[in-house]
């Protein structure tokens, strides 16, 4: 099973409090071992060496937008592995979906890669009339 990392985003109100509380509560009740950090941004600002260990291997991260998480780590030289990292966005997803995804053995990597940077989405592509 991949490691689980939960970010509490303690210093801002941007993650819905109900979502992060429910995710944390269910993680605590799950019987599964996990790492929880108060705030990934704060760790990045500190250039905390622990980020490197959190970035290693198969990991599911409950935090915010995958693009932001990728570069919170990457900006301090702790590159997340595009093939073995899945980020669950507590700003936009429901707690139930996040927990279902966190507790499965499968991992669906979803970090944006550099080829995605300027690639238009389906909606942005011109449609043939």
């Amino acid at each position: 099973m991949p490691r689980i990392l939960y970010c509490h985003c303690a210093y801002a109100q941007v993650v819905p409090p109900d979502t992060k509380e429910e995710v944390l509560r269910q993680l605590c009740d799950s019987g599964v071992a996990f790492d929880a950090v108060a705030d990934l941004c704060e760790m990045a600002a500190r250039k905390d060496p622990a980020l490197k260990r959190y970035a290693e291997g198969d990991v599911k991260i409950a935090a915010c937008y995958p693009r932001a998480v990728k570069w919170i780590f990457g900006g301090v030289g702790c590159k997340l592995n595009n093939e073995t990292t899945e980020v669950l966005n507590m700003r936009t997803e429901q707690a139930e979906y996040i927990m279902d995804t966190l507790l499965t053995d499968d991992i669906s990597p979803n970090l944006p890669d550099d080829n995605d940077a300027r690639k238009p989405t389906e909606e942005e592509l011109p449609t043939a009339n």
Binding site: M1, R3, I4, L5, H8, A10, E21, L24, R25, L27, C28, D29, G31, V32, A33, F34, D35, A36, V37, A38, D39, E42, M43, P49, A50, R53, Y54, E56
Partner: peptide, 30 residues
């Protein structure tokens, strides 16, 4: 358990819950 985790996180700590089930990040210094 929830209250302890929650209060420690609100206070800014990194907290690892270790059980017999699942992996956590290693610890090398500090």
């Amino acid at each position: 358990r929830f209250n302890t985790m929650s209060r420690l996180l609100e206070s800014g700590y990194t907290v690892t819950r270790a059980t017999g089930n699942g992996k956590v990040a290693s610890h090398d210094r500090g």
